[in-house]
């Protein structure tokens, strides 16, 4: 049964990581880039506001960090739970 428990724990950890990543994903694009733009309008950057920067640059940079962090973290989780590729 320990094998099964470990697999369940691994999948739960993966789901948790995905949930947090997608919250950040949504915050950087739909959030700061679009719907929350008025909230961060006070912060100016290069002749416009932070929301504009997020919509045209920041969100993409956040996506990059998210994907690489996810890959790094999951590859470690694979090893910790003994489900990595031999």
């Amino acid at each position: 049964m320990s094998d099964n428990d470990s697999a369940t724990a691994y999948w739960k950890a993966n789901l948790r990581l995905i949930t947090w990543s997608l919250i950040i994903w949504a915050l950087a694009s739909f959030g700061f880039g679009i719907l929350l733009r008025p909230l961060v309008a006070g912060i100016s950057i290069g002749g416009t506001d932070l929301g504009f920067w997020f919509a045209q640059q920041g969100s993409i940079l956040v996506f990059l960090v998210l994907i690489f962090y996810y890959a790094w973290r999951m590859n470690r989780l694979d090893a910790e739970h003994g489900v990595d590729e031999e």
Binding site: I18, S21, L22, W25, S29, G33, Q56, I60, F63
Partner: peptide, 21 residues
């Protein structure tokens, strides 16, 4: 201008979904 930032975010943000889901 700004409104078409949708293309930038949409055509890159899909990769986050693809990578994780």
């Amino acid at each position: 201008g700004y409104n078409n930032s949708s293309y930038l975010m949409g055509w890159t943000g899909g990769y986050v979904l693809m990578a994780m889901l």
